[in-house]
Design a protein around this nucleic acid. Structure first.
Lengths: 187, 187
DNA sequence: ATGTCAACTGGACTCGCAGTACAGGAGAAC
DNA sequence: GTTCTCCTGTACTGCGAGTCCAGTTGACAT
């Protein structure tokens, strides 16, 4: 149930790496199965088609990201009672983690999917949408707490603020990919 | 030389629309030529391969975007001598133009290309990189002028600031694509 | 020992799409 | 009337996705 090599997970690992390096379409099934060491038929035994692979990849990525966020902001919250400071600490922690990754951020699977939209079925797109809405909710909750403690001088749209944070992050990742640089993720 | 229907331009128009709707890979040459009303051979007469099409598309898009920026910030500059206010007016104009587009922003070809990286050859990627560096330079120049008139209280990295502006814009576009909403581009 | 089930392998086949090759045609330009 | 540009049409290669299916191998159950 758990101790095995787990071929399916192995496939996902290999596929994720390849997809982030070359994009989804550019990654052939041939390639994946060769790297994993199974046959094509073996792949199709685990995944109905490439779409199913994409879906599994996304699900796994989203779960991992959510877990990371929970962890980081949870720890930040323990360190500081003030919601504003906790959030700032959380962002700082996040920035440090990202800076520690070997080759910069591996690239956001979600944004990758967003730009290949029509390759996938409705389910995959829905997943993606939900993930983004999840981020928004998360940031919104933090901003709400903050706004309670520090009533803003002028009224702010908390949703918009949440979107902005995610937006900046996504944008930064795109830029990083294009430029091949490794700083900037501090802002 | 200029007055003709210009098949090549026609192809580019059709292809751009399709690519922004469905992504580059998902757009077949068959489809394009059918919509344009020429034969497959006709397509290959104008473009060596799909890569050449991508390149031409990118070039055209970058030129158009640069022209738009020149126009908008040029007009803004005429309206107001103060560089800070001019920039703000420019951004506002830009936001208005974007809001006027029928279906929200058509999607940034540059970011689209960024996420399909390996499908293209080095030339296409170089183009992309240069475009982003161009934006950075543009914003940097504006910030320099502003910083001259309004010396910042603490030292700021002007490049980083420029990147941030582009980053926010890119991020916003990604979000918009995923969510299918049409506000947000005001921030 | 026998059966059965999950997790595969191997081979053959279809289909859609990119790309190549090349022969030829229609119209304008000289 | 030749030449050049801008195509059309046909035919072919090759790759990758996806399907079908027959068969193998090892674990575990009765």
């Amino acid at each position: 149930m758990s101790g095995k090599t787990d071929t399916k997970t192995h496939i996902l690992n290999v596929a994720e790496k390849a997809v982030l390096e070359k994009g989804f379409e550019a990654t052939s099934i041939e390639e994946i199965v060769a790297a994993v060491g199974i046959s094509r038929s073996g792949f199709f035994y685990h995944f109905k088609d490439k779409n199913a692979l994409a879906r599994a990849l996304l699900e796994r990525y989203i779960d991992a990201e959510n877990a990371l966020f929970d962890d980081v902001f949870g720890r930040a919250r323990e360190l500081n009672d003030d919601p504003l400071h906790a959030m700032l600490i959380g962002l700082k922690l996040l920035a440090e983690i990202l800076a520690d990754l070997p080759n910069g951020h591996p690239g956001c699977v979600i944004a990758a999917a967003a730009y290949q939209d029509r390759l996938f079925d409705r389910g995959v797109r829905e997943l993606n949408r939900e993930a983004i809405l999840g981020w928004r909710a998360r940031f919104r909750a933090m901003f709400e707490e903050i706004a309670e403690r520090y009533p803003p001088i002028e009224p702010v749209d908390l949703d918009a603020l949440g979107d902005m944070v995610s937006g900046v992050a996504e944008g930064a990742i795109v830029l990083q990919k294009v430029l091949g640089e490794r700083e900037t993720l501090a802002a």
